[in-house]
């Protein structure tokens, strides 16, 4: 327990002192500022009612849905970037540099090291997305009087999506060096998001086969349905045609999660880390 705390402090200090954190912090602050300005312009331009062809749409609901959908995507993306940068070299990358050996030659268990490393980065990045989500939600509410339908659940889903991505990154860092791992995780990340769009296309077009195949793949990469669940929970409901218009946007609408999604994501994280710890414990450094 003592050694685990020492490692936790070390990983936390690394996260804070590395430039990655500063860079992501500055970019986030800039984006939040840009978002505030964009939201003000967009709500102002939309007014009470928007006319889309011959359809009249509630301006606040339409713009709010679009904006918060884009914002949640940006939060997921920045959180994932941070998680990957902070853990892409967790095991093999650090071992190749000779950073890991002096630590694991000490009486710190390898499993404890891996778990603590994952835990600290996951908590850190999850707090980051939750803070970004809170800031964006408050800005959207103050500027456009559009508040998330469920204020807490989007943050929970987003945080869990980031935990899944962190676990995947730490796990694959056992076998992949730093650069290869970063590339691999971002490919998986992109594949998950692309697959989510296929689910959406399947739903809109009624192509059942596409929808089924993409849904199965979504279970294998649960950060994507979690992201969709976050968008869904934040979206103020609209009726009928307006709902369809909102749903068809690439960033808005989201998908209603299965009740099994959260338990499955937690199981997924536990299984991923168990496999990673087993492989790590047998690895020559």
């Amino acid at each position: 327990m003592g050694a685990a705390l020492v490692v936790a402090r070390y990983v936390f200090a690394e996260a804070v002192r590395r430039r990655t954190f500063t860079v992501v912090g500055v970019i986030t602050a800039a984006l939040v500022g840009l978002y505030a300005w964009g939201a003000w312009v967009a709500f102002d331009a939309a007014g009470e009612v928007i006319q889309l062809r011959n359809l009249l749409v509630d301006g606040t609901v339409f713009v709010g849905n679009q904006l918060s959908g884009v914002a949640i995507f940006a939060q997921l993306f920045l959180g994932a970037v941070l998680a990957v940068l902070l853990s892409q070299s967790a095991i093999r990358g650090d071992a190749e540099q000779g950073l890991l050996q002096p630590i694991v030659a000490r009486p710190v268990g390898r499993t404890a090291y891996l778990l603590v490393r994952c835990l600290v980065v996951a908590v850190f990045c999850a707090l980051f997305v939750v803070a970004a989500y809170a800031a964006i939600s408050v800005i959207t509410g103050l500027v456009g009087d559009y508040w998330p339908r469920q204020p807490i659940m989007p943050a929970v889903y987003l945080a869990l999506a980031i935990v899944v991505i962190t676990a995947l990154t730490v796990a694959s860092s056992v076998v992949l060096g730093m650069t290869a791992n970063g590339i691999a995780v971002f490919l998986i990340f992109g594949a998950g998001l692309a697959n989510g769009m296929l689910v959406g296309i399947g739903e809109t077009t009624g192509a059942q086969g596409l929808q089924d195949a993409a849904s199965i793949i979504a279970w294998a990469l649960p950060f994507e349905p979690l992201y969709q669940a976050a968008v869904h929970a934040s979206a103020q409901q609209a009726d009928g045609l307006v709902a369809s218009v909102i749903q068809a946007g690439p960033f808005s609408g989201g998908r209603e999660p299965s009740p099994w999604l959260v338990p499955w994501a937690l199981t997924y994280v536990a299984a991923t880390l168990t496999v990673a710890a087993t492989v790590f414990s047998r690895r020559d450094l």
Binding site: Y10, A13, E14, R17, R18, Q97, G98, L99, Q101, P102, A105
Partner: peptide, 12 residues
């Protein structure tokens, strides 16, 4: 106590 042949300490 161990000094590895190839090692690095955290640069920060």
């Amino acid at each position: 106590g161990y000094l590895a042949e190839l090692f690095r300490f955290p640069p920060w």
